[in-house]
Simulated scan of single mutants.
Amino acid sequence: MSRIAARFEKLKAENRKAFVAYVMAGDPDEETARQVVCGLPGAGVDIIEVGLPFTDPMADGPTIQLAGQRALEGGMTLDGTLDTVRALRKSDDETPVVMMGYYNPIYSRGVETFLEQAKDAGVDGLIVVDLPPEEDEELCLPALEAEIDFIRLATPTTDDARLPKVLQNTSGFVYYVSITGITGAGAADASKVAPEVARIKSATDLPVIVGFGIKTPEAARDISAVADGCVVGSAIVERIGKGESVDDVLAYVRSLADGAHSA
């Protein structure tokens, strides 16, 4: 059983929802980012998303874009991102790690080589936002063969005709984007999210995790109450970008995790 599947089994047995946190590798610098990542499990995070910085993050809002720029300016690379995961694995071999980013750095490395390195580092899943289902042969299917989950995003514009295509090779969980547009924009509305989550769950047995627009413990609770859990990224990254200490960032993450777990 994969770490992701095992974590959802554990959460189900405990009757709890999942809290997923996103941080950018190398932001604001390599060492601080590693301290944050390694502190996330202790702050109540069930699954960690580690961002792979890229020069043209077309799906990301200003907060994540700036984080990627800071990371790249500080010298963060694909290898450095994998080293961040390795650092976590020295103290934690159970918390699932999902690498989130864009295809170009992976393509440049070579899919087979990348998957071998990712598996060796301890990566459990991938979210690659610029590879649609029509391109599954590029990375999705090879990743599944390498026993790395390929997590797909569904959005408010994913209609019933498109949904089966989105789900066909998805594994680990489905990431439902609660609002249209880029990361960090707007606020998630549980009353609007609930029917969409129900629609997706009627078509798959995979857990559905909701992201975008969640900034408070109350929002984490409300969204998790209508889904299998929630993701927070921009709100955490914003605090990192403002120069908050690792302890303060992790305290904020803990408040969000407690909110999600209270659903």
Rank of each mutant, 00 (worst) to 15 (best):
S2M: 07
I4M: 01
A5W: 01
A5T: 06
A5F: 02
A6K: 14
R7Y: 02
E9T: 13
L11I: 07
K12T: 13
E14L: 14
E14R: 15
R16W: 02
K17M: 05
F19E: 00
A21I: 01
A25G: 13
A33W: 02
R34D: 15
C38T: 09
G39I: 00
P41G: 11
P41Q: 08
P41W: 06
G42V: 01
A43W: 01
G44M: 03
G44K: 01
V45L: 02
V45W: 01
I48A: 11
I48Y: 05
E49R: 14
V50C: 09
L52D: 12
P53R: 10
T55W: 09
P57Y: 00
D60R: 04
Q65A: 03
G68P: 00
R70T: 01
G75S: 10
L78Q: 14
D79K: 13
G80L: 11
T84F: 03
V85C: 05
A87N: 01
K90Y: 08
K90V: 14
K90H: 13
S91H: 12
T95F: 07
P96V: 05
V98T: 06
V98K: 11
P105K: 13
S108L: 09
S108H: 10
V111R: 04
V111C: 06
E112N: 12
Q117A: 15
A118E: 14
A118T: 13
V123I: 12
V123D: 04
D124S: 07
G125N: 11
L126W: 11
I127N: 05
I127W: 04
V129H: 06
L131H: 09
P132E: 12
E135K: 12
E138P: 00
L139K: 08
L141P: 09
A143N: 12
L144N: 14
A146G: 09
I148T: 07
I148R: 10
I148F: 11
D149R: 05
I151Q: 04
R152E: 04
A154H: 03
T155A: 15
P156Q: 02
P156C: 10
P156W: 02
D159V: 06
A161T: 12
A161H: 11
R162H: 13
R162C: 11
R162N: 07
L163C: 06
K165I: 07
V166G: 00
N169P: 07
F173H: 03
V174L: 08
Y176R: 06
S178M: 08
I179V: 14
G181I: 03
G181D: 02
G186W: 02
A187Q: 13
A187M: 03
D189N: 15
A190R: 10
S191D: 15
V193M: 11
V193P: 06
A194K: 12
A194I: 05
P195T: 15
A203K: 13
T204L: 06
T204H: 09
V208K: 08
G211Y: 04
G213E: 08
I214S: 00
P217A: 03
E218Y: 08
E218H: 10
A219S: 13
S224A: 15
A227L: 09
A227F: 08
D228F: 07
D228P: 06
D228E: 09
C230K: 05
S234V: 03
S234C: 03
A235M: 06
A235Q: 04
I236T: 03
I240R: 07
G241V: 09
G241R: 14
S245Q: 07
D247R: 00
D248Q: 12
D248P: 01
V249N: 06
L250W: 01
A251P: 01
Y252G: 00
L256H: 02
A257H: 00
G259K: 02
